[in-house]
């Protein structure tokens, strides 16, 4: 079954063709990085306008790259839940129109479910059930992934997502946007033990996260250094800050694993591309006899292939959305 996936929930306009939920034939992504750099972040209305301009081209690109036409497509899957409302609408409007014009089944999906499937798509041997940490600029949660597309959210962030903290600290340090990859690169030249930043909620029994205090602590220290006219060891600050985030993410995930008796962890979302996070997860999990899985780097950030894969799984369960499919910007996963 060939599924056309469409994803426009935030700042990537993307379309992909995936065969049987397994084989990616094409994955076209038009990133709005130029706009993000210009405005220093996502401006919802600007992003939505750009989606409107790009959506058709991106879908055509996905078809052309795969050497397919709409005649070959069996179903359309689209992100309809969680994201920026104006952005979601563009993808859903395109998906339902194609579905109507070509008489194809349509399925609307939750964005986070897509990220969970980015990992399943990358690792055919990733077992379900497992514990999944999803972490990006927009979300940060621990999810129990069960069979038949059932999910239980175990914890989520009370304030900033880890990716958001990366972006904000990077911006403050005068680094480029998005902050995650820049801090990752810079940290390789720094000493991660140079500064001791707080590890918020690392000892708490809850499975929730909070990164706002850590962010403030880094920014305050930075200001203090400037006030004393000290040289700024940017790489050391970046490495120490990144280490604090990684410590919290790993510790919380392992707590979830212990509490829920799972021996398998999936880490997904934009921040799952972070090299130090992958390293620490791999070391720690190895010691404890836990298997850990990450998506391919190309599937960490938002993409439509993961939506097509999730769509396939739900289609197999017999689920369909009608042509009245609407968008729900704030619906939680499993809601």
């Amino acid at each position: 079954m060939l599924i056309l996936g469409i994803e426009t929930s935030c700042d990537e306009t993307s379309a992909a063709l995936v065969e049987d939920g397994k084989t990616i034939l094409s994955s076209a992504i038009a990133t709005q990085l130029d706009l993000l750099k210009k405005y220093g972040g996502v401006v919802p209305e600007v992003a939505a306008r750009r989606h409107t301009e790009l959506i058709g081209y991106v879908i055509k690109e996905a078809l052309d790259t795969a050497g397919k036409t709409l005649d070959d497509v069996d179903a359309v899957a689209v992100t309809s839940r969680q994201g920026l409302i104006g952005c979601l609408m563009v993808g859903v409007a395109a998906a339902k129109t194609i579905s109507y014009a070509r008489q194809l089944p349509l399925i609307g999906l939750h964005h986070i479910e897509g990220h969970i499937f980015a990992n399943i798509l990358s690792n055919p041997d990733l077992p379900v059930p497992h514990i999944c940490l999803t972490v990006s600029g927009g979300h940060n949660m621990l999810v129990q992934v069960k069979k038949n597309c059932k999910y239980k959210v175990l914890g989520s962030t009370l304030d900033d997502a880890a990716g958001e903290a990366f972006d904000k600290v990077a911006k403050f340090l005068g680094l480029d946007f998005p902050g995650g990859p820049v801090i990752d690169r810079l940290s390789k030249q720094g000493n991660r033990k140079a500064f001791t930043f707080p590890r918020p909620m690392i000892r708490s029994k809850e499975l929730d996260f909070s990164f706002s205090g850590l962010k403030t602590s880094v920014i305050n220290m930075f200001k203090e250094k400037i006030a004393h006219g000290e040289m700024l060891p940017l790489a050391d600050i970046a490495a120490s800050f990144q280490e604090a985030i990684v410590d919290v993410l790993v510790a919380k995930t392992l707590r979830a694993v212990e509490e829920h008796g799972s021996k398998v962890v999936g880490v997904t979302g934009g921040v799952s591309a972070n090299s130090r996070l992958r390293e620490v997860f791999a070391e720690t999990c190895k010691k404890r006899g836990i298997k850990v899985f990450f998506p391919k780097l190309s599937l960490c950030t938002d993409n439509a292939a993961m939506i097509a894969a999730a769509g396939y799984a739900r289609m197999l369960l017999g689920e369909r959305s009608g042509l009245r499919l609407d968008v729900f910007p704030n619906t939680p996963l499993g809601g």
Partner: peptide
């Protein structure tokens, strides 16, 4: 309406493209 136009234009162009 900003949102209205985005929906209408997307539906119009995708209808033309896919049909």
């Amino acid at each position: 309406s900003w949102t209205g136009i985005k929906v209408g234009v997307t539906v119009g162009k995708m209808l033309a493209f896919s049909a």
